[in-house]
Design a protein around this nucleic acid. Sequence first.
DNA 1: CCATATTTGCAACTCAGTTGCATCAACAGG
DNA 2: CCTGTTGATGCAACTGAGTTGCAAATATGG
Lengths: 118, 118
Amino acid sequence: MELIGLLHASDRALTQQELEARTTVAADRVSIFRSLDAFEQAGLVHRVLDAGGTGRYAPCTGGCAQGAHVDAHAHFHCVRCEGVFCLATVTVPKVELPRGFRSQRSHLDVEGICKACR
Amino acid sequence: MELIGLLHASDRALTQQELEARTTVAADRVSIFRSLDAFEQAGLVHRVLDAGGTGRYAPCTGGCAQGAHVDAHAHFHCVRCEGVFCLATVTVPKVELPRGFRSQRSHLDVEGICKACR
DNA sequence: CCATATTTGCAACTCAGTTGCATCAACAGG
DNA sequence: CCTGTTGATGCAACTGAGTTGCAAATATGG
């Protein structure tokens, strides 16, 4: 699908709205949601929440398979442009949890000013 | 306000809905949102997004002041009960960012099974 | 070519959060 | 005691993301 291309072409994670605005062949919002869902299941794309709780999508960088994401990298949230960037080089550190909690996956979100906004 | 008490009495972060259900003096959802907003500004309460992007509120553990949260601890998201817990003992590790990104704050979210759900 | 399965579009809905406006309570000064 | 201003509260209506049901369109396969 065209969506994957758009995601790869972007330097940041995109919302459904942004994707819809960029598609050449007009597609319904519902279809976009459904496609993104499917891609996520397939391990091609991952979904990140931005500061407002809205979903943004970015391509997986490999290693992600069918239903199991190795979503190991951190994300950067720019407070100025609201952009969300995948930090492929930044792995999420393991931390010591209190007794009783069993960890399966972690997300690290760094907030600040992005490259383009300074 | 009663809300602060409810938050302190809970072992996990609560949504506006959950708070509304627990208040003795019936309050409008809008009022609750507005109060929580005010408390957040005041540095008494902090807001965390759960896995679905919904806001959950928890009391600040001290050190947070007027408009500036020292939201230094991690949060745990239980995949079974959907609960969100503050991990007061777990500080968010600093990470090395790619050139150009300036960090202001970080959030670490651990996903897994909580104490009560095993 | 027809029958079945998959994809798409549309409408309508849910749910969190916000905004505008009217009302009510509190308190200050006359 | 009355009034005028201020801040909190309630209500209704809206927004925006995401979901669901259903019908129409488009593949797929015998």
